[in-house]
């Protein structure tokens, strides 16, 4: 009897604990990647759809596991039974019943599911267009220059958006499949080479939201992070106008030497600094690098020391990073000068 009651208690406890854990996890937190928030209209809609379905699932869970448990206890062999059990082969009415009832429940779930799929695919008129180009292992965000709509303004790893206005993201990839995901704000959308995907969402209030590449893309997939900075519309417009300007760097002292080194080395083959000879397009655009808050896909704070670490050996911070390590070819002093130059690019 002892062993049996332990068996029963544990069977009952395991799913209960699991459900509690689920509930705990389902509550909105301030965690940077939490999916069940209402910071974005998209994430709010998804949450509004997910919770009722989860509650149905939890109800069914308790009902069916409860039935299972009851059956186990009630119909266990007690020893000393005089008769063998009745050989029931089935019960048509019951079986039709437990086919129809789940079908009905699922049909009810299917209705809001389909209407939400259709709703989320709509693009509002006043949406701001932002192109997302994913590459191993960073995201490029491309805006239209407010002064000249045909000119593109490119930034890396840090997207600014106006809070409260819908953003229409057009998502592309230059190499393998990636996925654009800001869990606090919206569900993910894959970036597929040769294809343009759309995603529309609004950040409901200003804030810094964390994003990640959600589709495995080899070595540094886990470090392919970015941030979305939602700010009041006016502040956003000022930022975008600033980003559209050419670089205004100090060209004296260490920074001046850094500029010479930057323009005289392999850097310009991949990086662009508008208004200079650097016009590479395969690596992050550094025109306003000094105004960025983070480095290496939001891995490090953007300080001159961290820039030195990155330039010296990028692979140590991001395995497989395409940028060559300059630790062997440039002196520590030279790398420091380059870091000073980049930091002067506000």
């Amino acid at each position: 009897m002892g062993a049996r009651s332990r068996f029963i208690t544990l069977i009952r406890l395991a799913p209960l604990l699991l459900t509690l854990a689920l509930l705990a996890g389902g509550c909105t937190t301030n965690d940077p990647y939490d999916t069940l928030t209402d910071f974005g209209d998209h994430s709010k809609t998804v949450r509004g759809l997910f919770w009722p379905v989860l509650w149905v699932a939890i109800f069914v869970f308790f009902a069916v596991e409860g039935l299972l448990l009851f059956t186990m206890i009630r119909f266990r062999r007690r020893g000393g039974e005089r008769q063998m059990p009745k050989q029931t082969h089935g019960n048509t009415r019951l079986e039709v019943g437990w086919t129809i009832v789940p079908s009905l429940v699922l049909a009810i779930i299917a209705v809001p599911t389909i209407s939400t799929i259709v709703d989320l695919a709509r693009t509002p008129q006043n949406a701001l267009q932002v192109r997302v180009v994913a590459r191993q292992w960073w995201f490029e965000f491309i805006y239209a220059d407010p002064a000249d709509p045909n000119r593109a303004v490119s930034v890396a790893s840090e997207a600014h958006i106006p809070a409260g206005r819908p953003i229409h993201w057009t998502i592309e990839s230059e190499d393998v499949i990636h996925s654009f995901w800001v869990p606090n704000l919206a569900g993910k959308q894959d970036a597929v080479p040769g294809k343009k995907n759309d995603l529309v969402f609004t950040a409901r209030q200003p804030g810094v939201y964390h994003g990640e590449c959600a589709e495995y893309c080899l070595d540094s997939h886990a470090l392919m992070r970015f941030i979305v900075i939602a700010e009041p519309e006016g502040q956003f417009n000022t930022w975008l106008q600033g980003q559209a300007q050419s670089a205004t760097a100090r060209t004296t002292g260490s920074a001046g030497r850094g500029q010479e080194l930057f323009l005289g080395n392999a850097c310009i083959g991949c990086h662009a600094i508008e208004g200079s000879a650097a016009q590479g397009r395969t690596a992050p655009n550094l025109t306003h690098f000094g105004s960025r808050v983070s480095l290496a896909g939001n891995r490090l704070e953007n300080t001159p020391e961290n820039v030195v670490r990155w330039v010296t050996n990028p692979q140590q911070l991001k395995p497989g990073a395409k940028m060559p390590a300059f630790g062997g070819t440039l002196s520590e002093e030279d790398i420091k000068a380059i870091a000073d130059y980049l930091h002067s690019l506000k």
């Binding site: 069977i11 799913p15 994430s43 998804v46 299972l68 939400t116 799929i117 569900g187 959308q189 959600a214």
Partner: peptide, 29 residues
């Protein structure tokens, strides 16, 4: 019986990501 008890959980979570919009948050997590 362990199979039945655990499979119920897997089946129910399966229904929650048949809800395609919810799956946009759950996919690959």
């Amino acid at each position: 019986i362990g199979f039945v008890a655990m499979f119920i959980i897997g089946g129910l979570s399966g229904v929650t990501h048949a809800v395609a919009p919810a799956d946009t948050q759950q996919n690959d997590t």
